[in-house]
């Protein structure tokens, strides 16, 4: 064991510049990967929370409304309203349908605009009856709302999801950009490790030849190289974990969480999960290229 450690140490010293390059690439690529993972988690969390709150609202016709599937000058009849409700409830995507009368809508309007001079500008007849529709999976709102738009007596369909969609699009783009960049950098790190270990193995090929000849086991021959790559990887992982923690603490914990309270924010547990993931990737990134780079020297 002492021999392996000594060999590892001398290998690290011999390839100091390369080792530093590996550590830096590892740290940057793993930080980016971690940031990508955290963004994904944040997107998922936001989607889950916001989508759970929002509904598709189906407005019915009144005598004054126009457009949609309204007959001019006529409101939605009771039969049409029942038909609309039945159709909505029959849709497998729908989890609940709630009827909101124009009186309820007026009360809500008065509550929202209580401090505004506009509060007395409306009467119940200015408001519309509507159905509030909840979905099993709010992301699949499009089918429900287009079906509702085609029903007789429906004036308009408002899906709040369409407001969120562009936000999530940007989130998604950000997430993929970070992950793509990190994958490219991880590839660079893997190739650097292959190179470093191949050089180290080449400079020790005499020793390795003699080791094989006198019957040293493969794992014994491999150990110094594995340790060398693992040490570089562990330093890279620690730096990346530090960067992520600092970033999380500063961006989310100290700022976003207090200034943007409307959105839910990922917690320290999510950060820990991301760090565990990048640690696993870092270790794999050390071990697999090392095995590949030393394969030809271990062939018996």
């Amino acid at each position: 064991m002492r021999h392996s450690l000594r060999e590892t140490w001398s290998g690290l010293k011999r390839n100091l510049a390369m080792t530093i390059a590996v550590v830096v690439t590892m740290a940057v690529s793993l930080s980016l990967l971690g940031a990508g993972l955290l963004t994904s988690m944040e997107v998922d969390l936001t989607k889950r929370t916001l989508y759970g709150k929002i509904t598709v609202q189906v407005f019915l016709c009144t005598e004054n409304t126009q457009g949609g599937r309204c007959e001019p000058g006529k409101g939605t009849t009771d039969a049409q309203r029942d038909a609309i409700q039945q159709t909505l409830e029959a849709n497998p995507e729908v989890s609940a349908v709630e009827y909101e009368s124009k009186e309820v809508a007026l009360a809500e309007f008065q509550r929202v605009f209580a401090d505004s001079p506009a509060v007395h500008s409306r009467t119940a007849d200015d408001m519309q009856d509507s159905f509030k529709v909840r979905l099993h999976n709010p992301e699949n709102y499009a089918g429900v709302s287009s079906e509702a738009r085609g029903l007789q007596g429906v004036q308009a369909v408002q899906d709040q999801n369409s407001i969120l969609e562009p936000i999530f699009k940007w989130f998604g783009a950000l997430q993929w950009a970070t992950i793509t960049m990190s994958v490219l950098l991880l590839l660079a790190a893997a190739l650097q490790i292959v190179n470093t270990i191949r050089m180290a193995a080449f400079s020790r090929r005499r020793e390795m030849g003699i080791m094989r000849l006198v019957g040293a086991s493969n794992i014994y021959i491999l150990l110094p190289f594995l340790l060398e790559a693992l040490i570089a990887a562990v330093i890279g992982v620690v730096l990346a974990a530090g960067t992520l923690t600092l970033g999380y603490w500063f961006v989310i914990d100290q700022n976003a969480r207090t200034s943007i309270t409307a959105l839910p924010w990922i917690g320290w547990g999510d950060l820990a999960a991301a760090i565990v993931s990048i640690a696993a990737v870092g270790v794999a990134l050390a071990v697999i290229p090392t095995l590949l780079a030393t394969r030809r020297y271990l062939r018996i």
Binding site: R206, E207, G209, I210, R212, L213, V214, G215, A216, S217, N218
Partner: peptide, 17 residues
């Protein structure tokens, strides 16, 4: 490796470290 521990080998070019 177990087999090779029972065999010693010497070469023309010594192969010392």
């Amino acid at each position: 490796p177990g087999l090779r521990r029972q065999i010693g080998t010497v070469f023309q070019d010594f192969r010392l470290l």
